[in-house]
Amino acid sequence: MEQYETFNRIYDATRDALLRWLLPRIRSSADIEDLMQEIYRKLYRKMRKSGVREPEKYVFGIAKKELARFYRRRAVVQICEAPLSEQLPDEGCEPEDIVLDRESEREIWDLIRSEPLPSYQAFALYYGLSVPTNEIAQALGISEDAVRKRLSRTRARLRRYLEERQAEEQKGAFHERTGSISNRG
């Protein structure tokens, strides 16, 4: 039990830093959880078997090896992406009073994950880990302007989704209202 608690403590202390380190290095959005699972599994295994003197440092040592191992036998897949427009896309109006449930969270996340990899990485680093755009640019090896364009493009897509969802909800509420009126009628 003590070991569990120690592990949980180390996990909570290193999780964000490890994510921040891993995100620019992954080749697919689907890889991040696999990598995190394997890294922490190896850490816990090592803690159980022989103890680890400095676990926070050990985590990153494992992470480097695991990353190399993970991608070593994978052929590089060239992903063709339409070139980013020179102008920032029309993002539409900023939505207000957003209410999220589990389903809508999942749907928004699926949209984010389906973005081209650099866009997904930028969005996750910016919103999930509060990394400033200049640091994202350096981590991804692209210009800060490109980071902003990617964030903007992803936001535009998400705003379209939120607008459509809001419209559907309002339509549903209208039908419910008119139904109840007619019931009283």
Partner: peptide, 15 residues
Amino acid sequence: MNEQEAYQTVVKNQI
């Protein structure tokens, strides 16, 4: 919540 809070929530919960 506003847009920024929504995106932060989604990424933090789902990543």
